[in-house]
Simulated scan of single mutants.
Amino acid sequence: MRSSAAPALLKLLDAGERARYEAFLRDEPRGLYLTAHALLRELVGAELDRDPAEPAFSAVCRHCTSGGHGKPVLPDSPLHLSLSHAGDTVAVALTYAGPVGVDVEQVGRVGDPPLAVLSAEERAAYDRLPAGERARGFIRYWARKEAVLKATGDGLSVDPALLTVSAPDEPAALLAWAERAQPHLPVRLYDVPAPGDCLAAVAVLGDECRVVRHEVAYDGDGVLRRPRRAGD
């Protein structure tokens, strides 16, 4: 997103978000950051029936107290939030069901996949995939693992190889978590359709819930078409 197209979206951000936006040196990550946080505000505003610029988000990291990074939270609301972006795609998840993590990844964006992040069981299933399906299979694994680690708040402080998720051609599920007890709440893992060459997954800690997918378009004029609430 070009900076010249951004004023309408920038008006939605608070001072801290605008400062982080300005700190990016390249247009691509700057535009993705702006789109993700503007979309988050649009969605939360629609869900809570507030002006999108009103919510005061904080960021929570389980592993430090420096602030400014980590999962976005709304201290005055039971709504759980997560966001991710890859290529020109941004994903935002929100739910009342429990802590949530969403991840979207672009297939083929990097060279050789870092296979060390796969568990032994996952690596065996990956090796059985036809050569032409391995890039997509790896990204399916990675998106599922990232979604779980975002939901639990562990992030990449946990070695992803300790988690075993289901094979790429099977329904999404967390099968095992080595060297520690799994979170005390059940981990619900779902694949989510994503546009283009992207794959996405969402994880929720708690009761089973229905995943409802909405697309929000950006017309290139600096304005996101305001999303509707699911019940509208």
Rank of each mutant, 00 (worst) to 15 (best):
D49Y: 01
D49T: 11
D49K: 11
D49W: 07
R50A: 09
P52H: 10
A53R: 14
A53W: 01
A53H: 07
E54A: 15
E54R: 14
P55V: 12
P55Q: 09
A56K: 14
F57Q: 03
S58Y: 02
V60E: 14
C64P: 11
T65I: 00
T65Y: 03
S66F: 09
G67K: 03
G68H: 08
G68A: 11
K71M: 08
K71D: 02
K71W: 05
P72T: 07
P72M: 08
V73Q: 13
V73K: 03
V73S: 09
V73L: 07
L74K: 08
L74R: 06
P75G: 10
P78R: 05
P78Y: 13
P78M: 13
L79G: 02
H80S: 13
L81K: 07
L81Y: 01
L81H: 04
S82N: 12
S84E: 06
S84Q: 01
S84P: 03
S84K: 00
H85M: 02
A86G: 14
A86S: 15
A86R: 04
A86N: 03
A86T: 06
D88L: 10
D88W: 06
D88V: 01
V90Y: 00
V90N: 01
A91S: 08
A91M: 14
V92W: 00
V92I: 15
L94V: 07
T95N: 04
T95S: 11
A97Y: 06
G98F: 11
P99C: 06
P99D: 15
P99G: 12
V100Q: 08
G101K: 00
D103V: 08
D103L: 08
V104N: 00
V104W: 00
V104L: 08
Q106P: 01
Q106I: 05
G108L: 02
G108S: 08
V110Q: 15
D112V: 13
P113H: 11
P113F: 09
P113V: 10
P114I: 11
P114V: 08
L115S: 07
L115N: 04
A116M: 12
A116P: 02
V117W: 02
V117F: 10
S119Q: 00
